[in-house]
Design a protein around this nucleic acid. Structure first.
Lengths: 337, 337
DNA sequence: ACGGACTGAGAAAACGCTTTCTCATAATTC
DNA sequence: GAATTATGAGAAAGCGTTTTCTCAGTCCGT
């Protein structure tokens, strides 16, 4: 049996009693069903107002089979990219009266599947950001998670729309930009090894290399955090590269900081590029050349796709791709010598 | 009647049928009730595993009267401060198996009350960040929101613990720091007029002025965003002040940017301080002198207070105050001349 | 004035679970 | 061997809604 709280909350029964009608009638009035006599409806409304009655959402959810809530799984809430997705999603969903429930997997990919399932069961749909999850696991999980929209991942089996950022295209634009400045020795400070978006960047660089056999592109192991960039400074210098493509803005900022500590001038000695164009990228020293990703928009789009999925279960999942936009600032310059 | 979905989800009844027991027994097994014969329990577990049964959280919530979810109301998800609180809260709550539901009021204070009520009804408790809400409204709302923990607000009526940052103390430390550098003409670029935390800063400055009658402190209207700081550059220069206390790091960064565009050197011409020590404050040019607020910790503490409130309804609400820590970096220097 | 179509509201079932109540059956005691 | 106590599982109530089902009471046309 349910909880026995000290002071029971006001329920539909209380309103019914006060208005002298059945609770079914109260429900009808509260839901704007017009088959109720105007006089009675008014009496019910008065009673509800007097008791300050607000329907219990849990009871409502059980009866209606929906929660008006969607879940989002993110690998790391401290990452500005996911913060922005969350913001765009939350704002757009709120417009339509939906709320969002957070599940932070803390980069622990083994948790992602459990968290995703948990969140999905509590919500009407799920937005999944799981860059580390294996393709196999995603494929297996997808059907049970529907309706779901995927961020920067895709799956064949499920009806899940994918919202992808074209990292491959973006990294090529950055590399082309560096080449146009006269650089011939580039280094890519990579992201987490199993990250899907890192794979897309690597793939883009392969395409780039194929088109520019004369340009050297070294791949360095890295990470996705400020610290990863900061610690990589020595390694980057050791490559002899005159320009570095960092995995993202965070890494680039860490690298900028590390290089600065070692007296290396940017862009005079080394050019550095980021990726994402997070809000602070334009205020680093020097301002960061980067590939701008319309990430808040992506969050909004995630909601719109989700809404379509929820409203018409038969809507075709429309995948969309977001093109990064080259943003040239001060951290890149002509090659030395 | 509930929804008539195309493919019904697996329910407790399906497991009961397969295991050849009543659904009550299935429930017992799922909840680790040991009054079930080991043989039967095993059969139930096997059936549950075979069907991949997962209890419906909504049904569970209704029966148990709890949702294992807490809500948080924030005025603006794009503000790093609230992002950090959210992160600290979410991580700490997750440790104890709780999830967090977001309600972003988008700085619309008239929405705060409704959103708060909505969120509270869906959750077991509420963390409220509502800097713009009037004291009167907060006082009136508080009882209906319990259990609730307040961030940077306090209330007398309710049993709501308050987690406060001592902005008054922090701003005084910053001002003292500037005075020690020889500044005698200060300006405070204020935050939103109705913001509680802005009031605390103003109050701190009054205390400061009383102790330093020889120091001039001008108050300028401002805001809480990067843009507000950026636009205030001219106004700041017009005051003739040699040092500016910005409302927070965001404003300070905007100001830094605006001053830079006008060729004003920091700290040589003007010293600038921020507040909060957001992650990027140390990477501005010059690095920002600020008052560090342990904001993620505050988020964690918010959960711990909430947990105490939920677990023992009679626990005394323990308010805590977080002391900002002066963080001297490059944006402040000796007074000119 | 009588039967059929309408109105509108209450009774009851349903949503999916937990838990108390109840009562067989088995295990113990004298 | 009969009476008592454990043991354990099913029946049913309850959580707070929505919605179908049902059936009084009205209205209308003939």
């Amino acid at each position: 049996m349910g909880r026995r709280s000290t002071t029971r909350r006001i329920g539909i029964a209380d309103v019914a009693l006060l208005a002298g009608v059945s609770h079914a009638t109260v429900s009808r009035v509260m839901n704007g069903n017009f088959t109720v006599d105007a006089t009675i409806a008014e009496r019910v409304r008065a009673a509800a107002a007097e008791l300050n009655y607000q329907p219990n959402p849990v009871g409502r959810s059980l009866a209606l089979g929906k929660t008006d809530t969607i879940g989002i799984v993110v690998p790391d809430l401290s990452n500005p990219t996911f913060q922005a997705i969350l913001r765009g999603l939350s704002m757009a969903a709120a417009q339509d009266g939906y709320r969002v429930l957070i599940a932070d997997s803390s980069e622990v990919s083994s948790e992602e599947a459990i968290l995703a399932g948990e969140a999905r069961r509590r919500c009407d749909g799920l937005v999944l950001c799981a860059p580390r999850m294996s393709d196999a696991e995603l494929e297996e999980l997808a059907p049970s998670l529907h309706p779901m929209v995927l961020i920067n991942r895709s799956t064949e089996s499920a009806q899940a729309p994918s919202l992808m950022v074209d990292y491959g295209q973006g990294i090529q634009e950055l590399a082309d930009h560096l080449v146009s400045l006269g650089h011939t020795r580039l280094a890519f400070l990579a992201g987490p090894a199993r990250s899907a978006s890192n794979g897309m960047r690597l793939h883009g660089l392969e395409t780039f290399s194929a088109a520019h056999p004369d340009i050297e592109v070294q791949i360095l192991e890295g990470g996705s955090s400020f610290e990863a960039g900061h610690e990589a400074a020595d390694k980057v210098m050791a490559t002899g590269a005159t320009a570095v493509l960092a995995f993202n803005d965070l890494v680039a900022m860490g690298l900028l900081s590390g290089l600065h500590e070692r007296g290396v001038r940017v862009p005079e000695d080394i050019s550095v590029t980021g990726f994402d164009d997070i809000p602070f990228a334009r205020y680093t020293t020097p301002p960061l050349t980067t590939a701008a990703v319309p990430i808040t928009e992506l969050g909004q789009q995630a909601w719109h796709s989700m809404r379509a999925l929820i409203q018409q279960a038969d809507a075709p999942p429309t995948p969309s791709t977001f093109q990064p936009q080259l943003e040239v600032r001060g951290s890149t310059g002509p090659a030395k010598g």
